[in-house]
Amino acid sequence: MTDWFRSLFTGESRTRDIALVLIGSLLLWEGCVWLFQPPAIILPAPSDIWQSFIATPGTFLRNMLYTLGTTALAFAISVALGVILAIGIVQSKFLERTVYTLLVAINSVPKVALAPLFVIWLGTGLEPKISVAVMLAIFPIVIDTVLGLRSVDPDMLNMARATRASKLDVLLKIRLPNALPSLFAGMKVAISFALVGAIVGEFVAGGKGLGFLVLTAQGQFDTTRVFVSLVLLGLMGTVLFYIVDIAERLALPWHVSQR
């Protein structure tokens, strides 16, 4: 027992360090609320947030699943569409001059501001939420994949040309694998952006999801329920990020960052 207790504070363990920091912060939070007694509408204690969650866990989980579905679908569409666009941009000078230039221009617009437009165009169902999320998430995918497809060692391309390799072979066997590390870097950014897009979509189009829960709880000045939704969102974002991280480790055992 004492050995176990001592091992908590000695040696190296990432999980333990993270757990200690999390538990420490929660205890500090709980202590401050207990000490200073702020009104619950300003800052609820962690224990209150937990109580609020277990009062109606079904509602929270159902809405979380909805947001998760929107995020996952938008992320999948962004990856598929983004990679196809990136390949087109790299293979065709015309697409580079037109589509890529346009994409870079649109990227500098605060896209969240366009969300209400999608409600007008697509109504209040799943479509506007997916659209907003894709619009946010596709940019890092396209830009990073274009970079990865382009940054091939010129001698590697010479080696392929010397054998008169086909353009398709060069794309599939050299350019695409070479772009995978960049694609994964883009995917790590995109997964968070997809979640942001889904929430913004729920803010403006309403109906379902954690974003909608935050909005309704705010309307009722139920700060505790706002916090429950935020905690769930934070958990979801973290888990999604690590899923991409693990996928990267599995897909790229050869890459420098994984050795």
Partner: peptide, 27 residues
Amino acid sequence: MGVVFQRDVLLDWRTILDNVLLQAEFM
């Protein structure tokens, strides 16, 4: 024709055998 470059330009994601066989695939 076969060409050897100053740097080996092997593909990191392929095994040595698959790297050698790349020549046949490309041709």
